[in-house]
Design a protein around this nucleic acid. Structure first.
Length: 799
RNA sequence: GCAGAUGUGGCGGAAUGGCAGACGCAGCAGACUCAAAAUCUGCCGUAGGCAACUACAUGUGGGUUCAAGUCCCACCAUCUGCACCA
């Protein structure tokens, strides 16, 4: 069909025309209604774009183009998340500065994005590694520091021995380093944290106000992992020490028969002199320290532990003396790092008690505790003042009342989410703007000195001691304390990859501002993001982090909405043609640029949206691509039959049905059925042998968000006004989407027996009569019931 | 273990409780061609039948209903996330 168009030529032609006309430029403060559509900006990797990018961007692309045609002032920006390890690793290997390779990759990526014809507003292009940008990342960090949300702690952290970096929980899911996938180990380190747990409740509450898919919300709720319970203090016999635990079942206190501390619990060293088996305890603790978190949690195995011989605890409600153990099934990182064990009603405690021969006292009636722990509801027994309570809500409330009255316990809340480990011992990231002064402690870099720029270095390799490469740059490290003027040293760690992307959507509102991260009026006009599409893999990372930063900025009064994203959607993975995840090692990676070259950008865009349910993982099919190409060719060839039958109105109903279907399906991200509706229409046009020019204009408009280049070309050929990109979205007439006569099914006892044509307004009686006539020979029994569903079905129930 | 999702032809997938399989791919047959590709036309869930038609079919087993892929109960399988969370 090359006789109709040359895709390479027309794509370049129209991309240039759009650029010249500036049709995708968002207008600040326009009186039109605004629409802010956002896609997750890419990390500009050397490999260039992946088909996954195309799918992720095409959805909001279609919506943005449709919104423009519907009269909205649309902000659809793009930029680059350009700090990160791959550029740095490449720099280590080749000696090229990360800034150089990053710039090259950004240009390459930009060219590719333009070649696909995405309607981004390129005038708002940003890069997180640009000092004009990270100046404001540092500014926000200093605000967090000022408000006490930055703290330093010496703790066990996730550490990747291969990358030589500290990782956040989010970056070490499953015990594997997110960057190199090697095993993460636990290491004692002094690290900077952001107090994201202070925002746990706000992040939970915010979820109730936004339009996110339920599974996305649920995953965030689980990740935050709020649990309500109580902190209870147990005395250690013959000492003044108290051992505090966290429990969600304070009402089972009478069933506590032992306690367990995490092997890392700091109190253990205090008991050194009292312990008769300190050597054994030490050996066990060393054993545990060697294990990775993965080994410790992933392998559900036999309970291990050691009894602390020589000390015992006292049950605060009945004074019973109970043994204390250390065991690695208790984690230092959750609650207080110690638990009260109720073996009768907790399976883990039950297993431990069986193995170590500890008493099991039931306090809730039910189950068979000789077989397993009973975790259901029941009457309280063996529980002093709680005896006779029948539901856990009441018994917990009563126990809490008692604990608070006696001063031995109080209500408490715990989260699974941990504070955000925020420093990396790496070069290619935002320098953390803090100064260590021997006199004043930690002091923030003064705002007027921002950006604190990355100094040039010779060697990008992290130090063997786990120090950042910046630590070797004396002129960077040595500085004066802004408070006292004395000699001081700069923090040499950099921020994690996630910092720059935690607020980039704000910068798009005003990307060139050098007085503020964005002008308040512009923020007020554009925010919140109306529709944000991205990957499921970012739900517990980027999405949480950016919501946290944004909420903080709201609390200090510099942004105007508590939540940054009004609506979130996600795309399903594109799998390789073999149905496996695309990966270089499997050799099943499809390069989108090969598709653009061979079939054209329009075909690629159409295919990624047509290939399947947008939210589901779908394998790539080259034949499917060809099918989309065939459709576009058939579409282009329609010019031959425009007005073949002048004044022909036979397609009117089909046309309005298509407008309706495409208009509605796009809003629900049902792109595959929207495209199918257009394919159905084109089949009808060819069957009809003619299409009017006005019908073609409508068809071109509907297809233009998906396949904009060929649509502009045909629009021009047929003499359309201006650009399709700025034409108005077609309206449909509901009346015209309804057929005057319809074929309905005639069933006997729910089974299809015939079909019959009736008028759309046919009366019930008449429809049933026509139905009966069609199946007259089969009406052999007594008719019990006759059902008519207007325009759908006649069902005759016979005995 | 917990949370969420999914299960429909050879494949990707459609179906506000109302004719299951839209649309696309692949396949088969035909037209055009010296031929192939491209293009066009027709067929295309399974079984039986020349056919009209009939029976069976949406992971399995029950149920509700005039009517179930869709709703309810139980189970199986797969995927994703979290996971000794006290």
């Amino acid at each position: 069909m090359a006789k109709y168009y040359d895709h390479e030529k027309i794509e370049k032609k129209w991309q240039a025309k759009w650029e010249d006309a500036g049709v995708f430029k968002a207008e600040d403060g326009s009186s039109k209604p605004k629409f802010y559509g956002l896609v997750e900006f890419p990390y500009p990797s050397g490999a260039g774009m992946h088909v996954g990018h195309i799918k992720a961007y095409s959805s909001i692309e279609v919506i943005a183009r449709k919104r423009r045609m519907q009269g909205y002032n649309v902000l659809f920006p793009i930029g680059f998340d350009s700090f990160g390890l791959p550029a740095e690793n490449y720099a280590i290997k080749t000696g090229t500065h990360p800034a150089v390779i990053t710039q090259k990759n950004i240009e390459h990526f930009s060219d590719q994005l333009r070649a696909v014809g995405f309607s981004f507003d390129w005038s708002r292009d940003i890069a997180t590694s640009n000092p004009d940008y990270y100046k404001w990342t540092q500014w926000i960090f200093l605000k967090l520091f000022e408000k006490g949300l930055v703290f330093r702690a010496n703790t066990l952290v996730n550490y990747c021995p291969h990358c030589k970096v500290v990782l956040s929980n989010e970056d070490s899911q499953g015990g594997k380093c997110d960057i190199c996938h090697s095993d993460v180990v636990q290491k004692e380190k002094s690290v900077w944290y952001l107090r994201i747990t202070d925002y746990a409740d706000k992040l939970l509450e915010g979820l109730e106000t936004v339009d996110f898919p339920d599974n996305v919300k649920q995953q965030e709720v689980n990740w935050i992992g709020k649990s309500e319970g109580a902190f209870v203090k147990f005395s250690i016999k013959d000492t003044d020490e108290k051992l505090e635990i966290y429990t969600t079942r304070a009402d089972t206190l009478f069933g506590v028969t032992f306690m367990v501390m995490a092997p890392e619990h700091p109190l253990i060293d205090k008991y050194k002199d009292k312990l008769s088996n300190f050597d054994e305890v030490t050996r066990y603790r060393e054993e545990c320290a060697k294990k990775t978190e993965f080994e410790r949690t992933q392998l559900v195995k036999d309970k291990t532990g050691v009894k602390l011989s020589g000390i015992s605890a006292v049950n605060p409600v009945d004074g019973r003396e109970i043994p204390v153990f250390i065991a690695d099934y208790v984690m230092m990182g959750y609650g207080t790092g110690a638990i009260m064990a109720v073996p009768a009603h907790d399976q883990r405690d039950w297993e431990f008690a069986k193995k170590f021969g500890v008493d099991i006292i039931p306090v809730i009636e039910g189950g068979d505790i000789s077989v397993e722990a009973y975790t259901g509801d029941g009457n309280m027994i063996n529980s002093g003042f709680l005896n006779g309570f029948t539901n856990k809500k009441d018994s917990i409330a009563k126990m809490l009342e008692y604990l608070e009255e006696k001063g031995i316990g109080k209500k408490g809340v715990q989260y699974k989410m941990k504070d955000w480990a925020f420093n990396r011992q790496r070069y290619w990231g935002e320098p953390i703007p803090l100064i260590h002064c021997p006199k004043c402690g930690v002091v923030g870099v003064p705002y007027e000195e921002l950006p604190l720029t990355l100094p040039d270095v010779e060697n990008f390799e992290p130090g063997e001691d786990g120090n950042s490469p910046l630590a070797k740059i004396d002129h960077f490290v040595n500085c004066k304390c802004p408070k006292c003027g004395g000699d001081a040293k700069r923090e040499t760690d950099t921020m994690p990859q996630w910092a720059g992307s935690s607020w980039y959507f704000l910068r798009f509102c005003d990307p060139n501002n050098d007085k503020a991260f964005a002008d308040p009026d512009k923020l007020k006009y554009w925010m919140p993001v109306d529709w944000y599409n991205g990957g499921m893999e970012h739900v517990t990372r980027h999405l949480i982090y950016s919501r946290f930063w944004h909420r903080f900025l709201y609390d200090i009064g510099v942004v105007n909405t508590p939540e940054p994203y009004a609506k979130r959607s996600y795309q399903g993975l594109i799998l390789g043609p073999d149905g496996d995840k695309m990966s270089k090692s499997k050799g099943n990676v499809v390069d989108p640029m090969d598709i653009v070259k061979e079939y054209g950008a329009d075909t690629l865009r159409l295919y990624v949206l047509f290939m399947g349910d947008y939210g589901a993982a779908t394998p790539w099919s080259e034949n499917g691509v060809k099918g989309c190409k065939r459709f576009i060719d058939r579409f282009a060839a329609l010019v031959d039959i425009v007005d073949k039958k002048p004044g022909d109105t036979s397609l009117e109903g089909s046309l309005h049905k298509m407008i309706r279907k495409v208009t509605e399906d796009i809003e629900q991200m049902k792109f595959n059925t929207a495209v199918a509706a257009m394919m159905t229409f084109i089949n009808e046009v060819y069957a009809n042998g003619s299409v009017t020019k006005d019908e073609m204009f409508v068809f071109i408009k509907l297809l233009s968000p998906f396949a904009p280049h060929i649509c502009e070309e045909l629009w021009e050929q047929l003499g359309g006004d201006g650009l399709v990109a700025t034409a108005s979205w077609p309206e449909y007439d509901v009346e015209k989407t309804v057929d005057k006569t319809v074929e309905i099914a005639v069933q006997i006892n729910g089974k299809l027996r015939a079909t019959v044509m009736i008028d759309k307004d046919e009366s019930k009686e008449s429809a049933i009569a026509k139905g009966k006539e069609a199946v007259a020979d089969k009406l052999t029994g007594n008719i019990i019931k006759e059902i008519y569903v207007p325009g759908k079905i006649v069902n005759i129930v016979m005995k």
